[in-house]
Amino acid sequence: MRALLLAGVILTACGPSAIPQATAGDVARAQARWPDSSEQQLNQGRRAYLVHCGGCHSAVPPARFGASAWQGYVERMAGKAKLADPDKDLVIRYLQIAARPDSAAEAH
């Protein structure tokens, strides 16, 4: 039981989220592409991403892939994850805004 508590403390001490909440900067970049975007919308997309994609496997941090890659991944997996519009569209928006810039993603 002591080992369990120790493990809990270690886990709790872990760092910031790899699936970040949308910031004002994210909203400004989203509005440049989708003028109706809001912080609430982007965070709704984040929540839908965690529920639908994080149910089958650990949610992949958005910064792991470039923006252009995310759309393909979501389109391909949406059916089995029971992810339909409007949530699907919000997930794509969130992931593309939180993604690694495409040039950086390609460099890796």
Binding site: V51, H52, G54, G55, C56, H57, S58, R76, M77, G79, K80, A81, K82, L83
Partner: peptide
């Protein structure tokens, strides 16, 4: 498409199906 993966056999993880 992947399913609700487990990586341990006795220890449960926290993810739940959509």
């Amino acid at each position: 498409v992947q399913a609700n993966e487990r990586h341990f056999t006795y220890t449960y993880e926290t993810n739940v199906l959509a």
